[in-house]
Amino acid sequence: MDINSLYIIKRDTGVCIYHKDFTESGFDPQLLSSFLVAMTSFFDEATRSLTSQARAFEGSNYKIVVEFGDWTLGAISTKEDTEGIRIKLRRMIERFEEQFNVLRWVDIDLAVQTRFEQNVIDEFVRYLITPETVITVRAEWQHYTNRPDVMSFLRIIPSICSVRDAAEFLEVPVEVALNLAAEALWENAITVYNPVKPDDIYQATSLTGQDVGDEELSPETARTLTELDGETPVSIAAERVRTSDMKRFLNDVAILEKRKMIELVTPAHAIAVRYTSVLQSLLKGCSKIVGLNAMRKVFFVSREELVEMYPWMAYVTLEEGIDIEMRSSLTAATIRGTISPDILNDGFRVLIQFITRRVKDLTGAQPINKIIAITRDEIRQQYPSTVFEIEWESLAV
């Protein structure tokens, strides 16, 4: 999980009115809430600012990320300060202030801990669970939860199974099993593990990692460290090292991750890599019909129309010919997660729409729609489990 603790604090009193500790550390939330309110007030006074300026505090191995609402202060203890985490925190503050607005004026018991719980599960736990997620039921799970639906769920399913298998075992829709697994994880009644997928994108972190016992890497996977560059899906890396056993290869990648030798790229970077692959394939196909110079012109005219709305798009350009390049400053922002995945997704989608419509004016609808279909098939080969996160229907003309 990306975060350790979540706090919602009333700004005028410094009282923590909602708290969730995901690590079971037992730390008193009121101590931290008083500190945060005092420090943010100090910085406001020191800078003579009308709006709060202090937005993060850093410890030895954690950061406390701070965002402000109208009358509350939200804080998250996390390892990394990313835009994605800040977006989640701002949504939590907005929902909390809307649901419990009466607490702005009076201090009454509204059962905040239980009534706000589902919002936190949806934002911080549910995204960890996919149909392929492997569930391991804790041996003494009865001591962790008293929710009737979770207890019924855990009594029936095998002690180790995927969420999809659990849904089939219970004969319920996968979405129901996903929600039940999220609630069970919230209660600490299960642990979860997400297997390596062929279209996952990893980047190397170091050449030596933590000891994991007798697990040995195959020669192919040892060579893979040079291929996991933050740009290449696991499936393509496997092809480059000519592995003969994909299942073994995925298991070995999981060992590398366990040893902290590699890590998944941020969601923002994964979206950027996926969409640049789409753009590259699309431009290549279109240039065969309209020519390189015409395609370069279409790209740059389309991009310039969108730069005012999406300033980061100025850093997506073409090298010689039609080779897509992301400038280093944008790449660094996606790697650090300081740019929102949603903003990237929207921008790239609109850019491709502008390009396909301009190409249609040159070739007609049928050729460009065929190129889009070919591009989709190529991307499916590289990203089989995430290809449909791209809105292909909106790209057709």
Rank of each mutant, 00 (worst) to 15 (best):
E175S: 13
N194G: 04
K197Y: 04
V172N: 11
Y202V: 02
L217K: 02
E216S: 15
L185M: 10
Y193N: 07
L170T: 04
L217Q: 06
E216L: 11
N188I: 01
W186A: 09
L170M: 12
Y193M: 09
P173F: 05
Y202S: 07
D214Y: 07
A182Q: 00
D199I: 02
D200L: 03
T205C: 14
L207K: 15
V174M: 02
A189E: 00
G213H: 03
V212C: 11
Y193S: 14
W186R: 11
Q203I: 15
V174W: 06
E187C: 06
N188S: 15
W186G: 05
Q210W: 12
T205A: 10
W186E: 11
K197N: 10
A184N: 06
G209F: 01
L178S: 11
P173C: 08
V192A: 01
P198H: 09
V212H: 12
T205H: 05
N194E: 06
L217R: 07
N194R: 14
D200C: 05
T205E: 15
Y202M: 07
V196E: 06
Y193A: 13
A182K: 02
D199F: 03
E216Q: 13
T208Q: 11
D200T: 09
A177D: 02
D211C: 09
E215D: 14
P195L: 12
Q210Y: 10
K197M: 09
N188Y: 12
I190G: 04
V196T: 05
N179S: 12
N188V: 00
P173G: 04
P173Q: 05
A189F: 01
E187T: 01
Q210H: 13
A184Q: 03
S206M: 07
P198C: 03
A182H: 04
K197L: 14
G209E: 00
D214H: 13
Q203C: 09
T191R: 12
V192Y: 00
S206N: 11
K197D: 08
P198L: 03
P195E: 06
